[in-house]
Simulated scan of single mutants.
Amino acid sequence: MIAAPLLDFFLAALTTLMVTVDPPGLAPIFLSLTLGMAPEARRSVAFRATLIAGGIMLGFAFFGQPVLGALGIGLPAFRIAGGLLLFWIAFEMVFELRNRRKSGVARTAIDEDHIRNVAAFPLAIPLMAGPGTITATMLIAGSARGEPVRLAALVGVIALVSLACLLVFLAAERLSKLLGITGNLVLTRLLGVILAALAVQFVIDGVRAML
């Protein structure tokens, strides 16, 4: 039987990361970023993004604070940089720059480099393993106080959150078919505005933390 303190730690970590990553909220964004891709390519993006984001969370859980401290980089800088990068993606989505590029891609085969690029940025980072997720992961790792059992529980939590994201991405394919071409285009515009607001919030949080 799991000890109560360990169970509390596990549940608190799972709740925190689930809320921070928000797998259900990533589904429509995943659809927008993979617009025009074949089902096989979309599944490839889902698997790659999940592995990359999971690896990033694990890396920051165990080595984040020492590495950032050695480089003299603070978490507020991560928030600001992530916000600026995300705002550019939102700008493309709102003004159809991304859609035009995707429509051209849809007429040709999706090459491996394109799939890797979309999976790594912006899906894996900063959308899945963004500043908030990185911060939460490092804080949870700090609260483990180096105890092997708690660190193992944190690894399990990261695996569960990553699995939840993967399942949501795979289920998003059906949603894409239901929406159709027009529905996907409208959804892309709406999500572009939401992403822009999220990006601005990242920058605001970063500046606030610096001040």
Rank of each mutant, 00 (worst) to 15 (best):
L7A: 10
D8Q: 01
D8G: 03
D8C: 00
D8N: 01
F9V: 05
F9H: 05
F9D: 00
F9G: 01
F10Q: 00
F10C: 00
F10K: 01
L11M: 09
L11E: 02
L11W: 05
L11D: 00
A12R: 13
A12E: 10
A13Y: 04
L14D: 04
L14T: 09
T15I: 06
T15H: 02
L17P: 00
L17T: 03
L17H: 04
L17K: 06
L17G: 02
M18N: 14
M18L: 15
M18S: 14
V19P: 02
T20L: 00
T20Y: 00
T20A: 08
V21T: 08
P23L: 10
P23G: 10
P23I: 11
P24A: 09
P24K: 08
G25M: 03
L26E: 03
L26P: 06
L26C: 07
A27H: 09
P28C: 05
F30T: 04
F30K: 07
F30W: 12
L31W: 08
L31R: 12
S32D: 08
S32K: 10
L33A: 10
L33Y: 06
M37Q: 13
M37A: 13
A38N: 15
P39T: 11
P39F: 13
P39G: 12
E40W: 15
E40H: 15
E40D: 15
R42M: 12
R42T: 07
R43S: 13
R43A: 11
R43E: 15
S44N: 15
V45W: 11
V45D: 12
F47G: 00
F47C: 01
F47W: 13
R48H: 08
A49R: 04
A49I: 02
T50E: 10
L51G: 12
L51H: 03
I52K: 08
I52Y: 10
I52H: 07
A53D: 00
A53W: 05
A53N: 02
